[in-house]
């Protein structure tokens, strides 16, 4: 254990420049989202109907719209900055929800085996064989849209991936001598799972979670794009783009600004995730 920790520390010292760049980018986007009220030049929901669909750099009544306005004359820069909150928030929270649900179920299945295992793992099979986006569209039809419901929908449709990993890892770990020992010493299942099993399977779970984080951002924007996401007048990058799609010829910036942001965000997450996987998973390590 300590030997590999040492190796990781060694490798961390040789961080490639691309990873540093995307980390800075990611940090910048997160900061933008957190400090949106300070960064955004205007109220993201304030409409000026006389300044609709204006190009970047347009000035109206002493207000300059640096990246233009949308179809209700709202400042696109401010909306994009606030949109980061929704896109990141939904993705982060739904990853947390699905990790918690998925990992708990996976550990239970791997620890107790028997019927618990059968039921949980068959449920995983079922969930995995319904396309996630269809399941999400179906669930939105029942729950209705909105920020928290979106988190719930995405979180509850994506947990099986974590369960599979947590299950397989728990099976391996549960045979380790020190865990057998603490079981004999009379420690309860919950205690063993959380204190001994969880820390040992955290690495692989982290790999899944980073990959899922990127996917969640795309799923949220996909749902918003279909008109099933966040409630107006709030907006996520996906929903701004879905509005802008109609104005592609007249006002390309409505799609372009959040589109570029969305791409940079997912790109950063993916590059970072790849690097993290190379560090944590010796099998795919190649450099």
């Amino acid at each position: 254990m300590t030997a590999s920790a040492h190796a990781i520390r060694q490798r961390l010292r040789r961080v490639p420049p691309s990873v540093i760049v995307v980390s800075v980018l990611l940090a910048a986007i997160v900061l933008l989202a957190v400090f949106a009220p300070l960064v955004a030049p205007a109220d993201p929901n304030n409409q000026t109907l006389l300044a609709r669909l204006k190009a970047p750099g347009f000035t109206y009544r002493g207000v300059t719209y640096w990246v233009g306005t949308d179809d209700l004359g709202r400042d696109l820069l401010s909306r994009t900055v606030y949109g980061a909150r929704v896109s990141l928030g939904v993705a982060a929270l739904s990853v947390i929800v699905s990790t918690m649900v998925g990992v708990s179920l996976g550990m239970l299945a791997g620890w107790f085996r028997g019927w618990t295992e059968t039921i949980i793992m068959r449920l995983v099979d079922i969930m995995m064989s319904i396309p996630a986006i269809l399941l999400a569209v179906l669930t939105v039809a029942v729950l209705g849209p909105g920020f928290l419901k979106l988190v719930l929908v995405l979180g509850l449709t994506r947990w099986p991936r974590y369960t599979r990993v947590a299950y397989a890892q728990t099976l391996q770990v549960s045979n380790l001598p020190f865990i057998k020992a603490s079981e004999l010493a009379g420690a309860g299942a919950v205690r063993i799972l959380f204190h001994h099993v969880l820390p040992n399977i955290a690495g692989p779970i982290l790999i899944v979670a980073t990959a899922e984080f990127g996917l969640m951002i795309l799923m949220e924007s996909g749902l918003s794009f279909l008109g099933l996401g966040i409630q107006p007048p709030s907006a996520s990058w996906g929903s701004i783009m879905s509005v802008g799609r109609q104005y592609l010829e007249r006002a390309w910036w409505i799609v372009a600004v959040p589109g570029v942001c969305l791409f940079l965000l997912v790109f950063s997450v993916n590059v970072l995730g790849d690097w993290l996987r190379d560090q944590l998973d010796p099998r795919s390590r190649s450099r």
Partner: peptide, 16 residues
């Protein structure tokens, strides 16, 4: 990585 990071609807819009 780029291919993996572009939302399908964004690339669709761009292509159109």
């Amino acid at each position: 990585v780029t291919g993996q990071s572009v939302p399908t609807f964004l690339s669709a819009i761009l292509l159109i």
